[in-house]
């Protein structure tokens, strides 16, 4: 595993020290999970979810959500009731 590349996919920047440390620790974990390799699972269905629940529907009815100003109160940066982010287009 290339820790820096994967960290980039996960939108994480790493210091050199972190990259070196995680590279070793995670390689150790990946070596361990090789335990699963010898198992023959060709005919086994995967479990995504422990329950046999499928297609849980509800009536499509409008209900009040959280008040807008209460949600915006947690914004790190906001203006005119909108979340502010750095400019994307010049």
């Amino acid at each position: 595993m290339d820790v820096r590349y994967v960290a980039h996919l996960a939108r994480l920047s790493l210091t050199d020290e972190e990259a070196g440390l995680f590279q070793g620790q995670l390689q150790h974990v990946l070596d361990y999970v090789q335990e699963l390799s010898p198992l023959n699972v060709a005919d086994v269905e995967p479990t995504a979810h422990a329950l046999p629940l499928q297609n849980v529907f509800r009536a499509d009815e409008a209900a009040p959500g959280l008040p807008h100003e209460q949600v915006m109160a947690n914004a790190p940066q906001a203006r005119n009731g909108l979340f502010m982010v750095p400019r994307i287009l010049e």
């Binding site: 820790v3 994967v6 960290a7 996919l9 996960a10 939108r11 994480l12 920047s13 790493l14 210091t15 972190e18 440390l21 995680f22 620790q25 995670l26 974990v29 990946l30």
Partner: peptide, 17 residues
């Protein structure tokens, strides 16, 4: 994310990714 997540959270996000 680099500044505010702790090391174990970073490790698990990387492994999961």
């Amino acid at each position: 994310r680099a500044t505010y997540f702790g090391p174990e959270v970073k490790r698990r996000i990387i492994l999961g990714t």
